[in-house]
Amino acid sequence: MRYLLLTLFCLLAGAAHAAPAKAYMSIIIDDLGQSSERDSRTLALPGPVTLAIMPDTPHATDFARQAHKAGSTVILHMPMDPATGPYAWHPELTLTELASRLDAALAKVPYAAGINNHMGSRMTAQREPMAWLMAELQRRHLFFVDSRTSAATVAAAKAQALDLAHVSRDVFLDDVRTRDAIQAQLQQGVELARRQGSAVLIGHPYPETLDVLEREMPRLKSQGIELIGLQQMIAERGNQAMPAHGKHGRYSNR
């Protein structure tokens, strides 16, 4: 009897420390709207991909409409300091001007279901503007993706404080633009998804990135990875911070 109880205890302890039963992955491609060829190739990737379109690009509006018609998730890739241009957010701007630039950017990217930051290492560290942005997105029924371009970001923490639908990026695919490096980053995403149950990856429409994704996305299922859309990922994570971004589900930078 004691042996049976010990065996049962060991089995239960092992199950408690086992990897999650499912491993989910979502992929976001940033900087879209600049090239019709790269936009179309991204749209044709073999699986659900979220398309982050920059407002100050020549094909932003047309591609947003095309992607929406194809059933893809479109988000606004919002320029933030140190990004420049007519839509970019900077710390010295008033909330009125920030609101005006957000309105104009959303008008350029129709059907946006949410936004993520383009660059933004300075801007996403600003508490008041980030708190305002999350309240505004809540009002508009849009979600937020923290690209985490800086360890000092408070954006996701401000979203969490309002219970705004959001996720944070886990892995950048293509900081190094070689196929081998991108392949290694994708594998890091696979291993992270297996370990913590999910991984959010961000890449760009570089030829090298698209080459790797075209080849590897169909193989993810055989590695135990389920590719899901970003809205489903938000639901799976339930607005909780991943271990790399905080403790006990709460973001560190509050």
Rank of each mutant, 00 (worst) to 15 (best):
A107G: 07
L8D: 08
M1F: 13
V74R: 03
M25K: 07
V190N: 01
P243F: 10
D103R: 08
V154K: 01
I53N: 08
T61D: 04
E191S: 12
S198E: 15
E236T: 09
M78V: 00
K69H: 14
A13R: 02
A193R: 02
A155W: 01
I225Y: 13
P207K: 07
H68I: 00
P79C: 06
S72V: 05
G71Y: 11
T124Y: 14
P48N: 06
S26T: 09
F143N: 05
A156K: 02
Q231R: 14
F144V: 04
L162T: 06
D39L: 01
K158D: 13
D56R: 08
L32V: 01
L192D: 05
A88L: 10
K221H: 15
Q185F: 10
G197M: 11
N239T: 09
R237E: 12
R194S: 13
E128K: 14
D211A: 14
D31W: 10
G189V: 06
D180L: 09
G197Q: 09
Q187D: 15
A199H: 02
T149W: 08
L186N: 04
L51W: 04
S40I: 03
S150T: 15
V171S: 03
A88V: 06
R148Q: 08
L133G: 05
G197Y: 08
A244F: 13
D163A: 14
I29W: 00
E136D: 15
I234H: 07
T42R: 00
K221V: 03
L213P: 07
F9Y: 09
A67L: 02
E191R: 15
S147C: 11
L32R: 00
R101W: 04
V171C: 12
Q223G: 12
R219N: 14
T178G: 12
V190P: 09
F63N: 02
M54S: 05
L230P: 02
A104T: 01
G238S: 08
D180Q: 15
L164V: 03
A151T: 11
A161N: 05
P20I: 11
I28G: 04
R177V: 13
W89M: 10
P110K: 07
G14P: 12
A135R: 13
T209V: 02
H204E: 04
I29T: 05
H245R: 11
V212K: 01
A199F: 09
N239Q: 14
A105N: 06
L43S: 08
G47E: 06
I228M: 06
A99M: 03
V49H: 03
E208P: 10
E136C: 07
M78N: 05
E128T: 10
Q160W: 07
M130K: 06
T209L: 09
A67H: 04
I225W: 05
N253W: 11
P20Y: 08
A159R: 01
E37R: 13
A161I: 05
N239E: 10
A199T: 03
D103W: 03
M80S: 09
M123I: 01
P58Q: 09
D39T: 00
G246A: 09
V167N: 08
